[in-house]
């Protein structure tokens, strides 16, 4: 129930003060008015995240155990070039219908929004050109590649061990 209420009010935690919202009185919907729900006004980059990622990754960058957690984690990947590439080359990012420019903008937003503290110091935002080049190389086995990238982060001393970025690859059989 609580998570449901949170999901309705899509308010990024770190930008609480800045996110424009829409008052319940201004929304012609019987339930919005009944419950007095304040809705966020969604910026274009947030809309791109919502349509392409939020359904599984969650409005705050974390969701169920089988879906990789972005909140407090995704930023680690920016510390190595392999990790930086991986964030663009995961199939749902690489194959997204978003053009390079918007994809770059969304990745940059997502990283600062959900994992600003884990970013490489002096993090250089993705550019459209970089995204374009990275999207030309596909990963054949995502499971294998992720393991390599995570091992690389451990070797580089970015994370203490692989467990820091572990998530369940087994489907949740509830």
């Amino acid at each position: 129930m609580a998570s449901f209420a949170l999901a309705i009010a899509f308010v990024p935690t770190s930008a609480l003060a800045q996110t424009p919202t829409v008052s319940p009185e201004s929304v012609p919907d019987v339930l919005v008015r009944e419950r007095g729900t304040w809705l966020p006004k969604v910026a274009p980059v947030e809309e791109d995240y919502s349509r392409n990622c939020q359904g599984c990754h969650g409005h705050e960058g974390h969701s169920v155990q089988e879906v990789p957690r972005l909140q407090g984690r995704a930023g680690w990947f920016t510390h190595t070039s392999a990790g930086r590439a991986y964030l663009v080359q995961v199939p749902n990012v690489l194959q997204s219908s978003l053009p390079d420019e918007r994809l770059a903008a969304m990745l940059n937003w997502l990283l600062t929004q959900f994992s600003g503290e884990q970013l490489k110091p002096g993090f250089e935002p993705y550019t459209a050109a970089e995204v374009h080049a990275l999207r030309a190389q596909r990963i054949e086995s995502v499971i294998a590649r992720r393991r390599e990238v995570v091992d690389g982060l451990v070797r580089a001393g970015v994370i203490p061990d692989a467990a820091a970025l572990a998530f369940s690859l087994e489907p949740g059989r509830y």
Binding site: I8, V22, V32, L39, P40, S50, S63, V64, Q65, Y174
Partner: peptide, 18 residues
């Protein structure tokens, strides 16, 4: 995905934002 079981009960439609 993520619910206690993957059995479908009904469909909802929550507003994410404007």
């Amino acid at each position: 995905f993520g619910a206690s079981s993957m059995i479908y009960h009904c469909s909802s439609a929550a507003i994410v934002g404007q």
